[in-house]
């Protein structure tokens, strides 16, 4: 069973993502910020990490860099805040830094499931 780590500072969204992913059959770990996320990952590595990039200290990008550096095989989905001005700066950066997919808020659950599913298929195909 694949493990998905959700890093998101808004607790409602965190809970939503957990519900959605669990329904789809994934095991979900969660963290409220980048540092906690990295810690959680070291305890229990995930196959896919879903992380918000616009978090209070812009840790999102840092988190992606570190994850990719330390765990090159992990799949990362970066979610933007939807303040499009920031999106434009950070989404391409996120991709350049190692995010495999990006999603813009507000996304629909279907999009997340498809993204996770797609990444896992790619991973297993290798």
């Amino acid at each position: 069973m694949a493990v998905v780590l959700v890093i998101e500072d808004d607790e409602h969204l965190r809970r939503l993502l957990r519900t959605v992913l669990e329904r789809a059959g994934y095991t979900v770990e969660e963290a409220a910020n980048g540092a906690a996320g990295l810690k959680q990952f070291s305890i229990r590595p995930a196959d896919v990490v879903v992380t918000d990039i616009i978090m209070p200290e812009k840790e999102g990008l840092e988190t992606i860099i570190e994850l990719k550096r330390d765990y090159p095989h992990v799949k990362i989905i970066a979610i933007s805040g939807g303040g499009a001005a920031l999106d434009a700066q950070y989404l391409p950066s996120a991709k350049a830094l190692g995010a495999d997919r990006t999603l813009e808020k507000p996304f629909e659950p279907r999009e997340v499931i498809e993204a996770v599913g797609g990444l896992l298929r790619e991973a297993s195909a290798r």
């Binding site: 808004d10 409602h12 969204l13 939503l16 993502l17 519900t19 959605v20 329904r23 616009i54 805040g81 939807g82 303040g83 499009a84 001005a85 920031l86 808020k105 507000p106 996304f107 629909e108 659950p109 279907r110």
Partner: peptide
């Protein structure tokens, strides 16, 4: 707009997300 967009988007994500789940 810039100030509230991020927050509103979070709220909308909840609305869309749970509505979708409810439909399921």
């Amino acid at each position: 707009a810039g100030g509230i967009a991020a927050d509103v988007n979070n709220i909308l994500a909840s609305i869309l997300g749970y509505a979708d789940l409810a439909l399921e």
